[in-house]
């Protein structure tokens, strides 16, 4: 009969204890106190009282800024998607010209993914100055990291048959890529790109906080000036735009993939 309790392996014990210690140390650093919690609720109440009703006075300015955010997201994503395709082709096992190039391209994509977008934004604001341009570049980098990976995964998992059929005609590699790999991947590429737009809209809002253009700047100013009613108006505006973009993207995706 097996024992009722089995002692876990030494490694498991060490990892568990180590994790627990880190958590307890972290908890200590959080300066959690009932006092601050209570005053926090009171402050939150101040915010809510101050925010209602939302102030529509600067609605037009906010709308223009939101439109700029949308533009940053859209243009950045489009550039990102178009750059992702060749990078994904270089990175995928079955299309890379050489395994070494494949590793380099894969490494490049993961580098773009690992660096958080706010850091990209800070770097671009320093290098190209304030405004929507660094925002667009940031979204582009983010999109290459996102789409590059998913495009390349789609290319790698493609069924071999149709690709071999085009190869069997004696086609060169360009013919194989344009004649089978890209057309076969289109529905998935479109789906991924639409997700990238949704992600980019949310990302672009935050980018404004570090000076990379769009509504983020306005929101940040309103908050620091304690104009909560104006801030709420912007938050609601962001919410509406994000929801609209998501709905449109879902609609297109359904329609496109149903026809594929």
């Amino acid at each position: 009969m097996p024992k009722r309790f089995k002692l876990p392996s030494p490694a498991t014990i060490i990892i568990t204890i180590g994790g627990l210690i880190l958590f307890i140390l972290g908890l200590g650093s959080m300066e959690i106190s009932a006092d601050r919690f209570f005053s926090g609720i009171v402050n939150m109440f101040h915010f809510i009282i101050g925010a209602f009703p939302p102030d529509l006075e600067r609605f037009q300015t906010a709308l223009v800024a939101m439109y700029e955010t949308f533009q940053i997201a859209l243009v950045g994503t489009v550039f990102g998607v178009f750059l992702s395709l060749p990078i994904a082709l270089l990175a995928s096992r079955n299309t890379t010209p050489h395994p070494v190039i494949g590793y380099v391209a894969k490494g490049f994509i993961s580098l773009l993914r690992t660096v958080p977008d706010l850091i990209w934004a800070l770097i671009f604001v320093i290098s190209v100055g304030l405004g929507p341009f660094p925002g667009m570049l940031t979204i582009m980098m983010d999109t290459i990291g996102f789409c590059g990976r998913f495009f390349s995964e789609r290319i790698e998992e493609m069924e071999k048959g149709p690709i071999e059929a085009v190869q069997s005609t004696g086609s060169n590699q360009t013919g194989v890529i344009f004649g089978s790999i890209l057309p076969l991947g289109v529905p998935s590429f479109v789906g991924t790109s639409l997700f990238a737009v949704e992600k980019a809209i949310r990302g672009a809002v935050v980018l404004g906080l570090v000076g990379a253009g769009g509504i983020g700047v306005e929101l940040s100013v309103a908050m620091t000036m304690r104009q909560f009613d104006e801030a709420l108006m912007m938050i609601l505006l962001i919410l509406v735009v994000v929801i609209i973009v998501e709905q449109c993207s879902t609609y297109i995706r359904k329609k496109f993939i149903a026809n594929a």
């Binding site: 004696g170 060169n172 013919g175 344009f178």
Partner: peptide, 24 residues
């Protein structure tokens, strides 16, 4: 399993047969 390229027209698929002697 025929192995046609989905998402493209019949004519386009047939034209791909010439890829061995023509560029894309």
């Amino acid at each position: 399993h025929y192995h046609l390229t989905h998402n493209l027209s019949v004519l386009q698929n047939v034209l791909f047969g010439a890829l061995g002697r023509q560029p894309f």
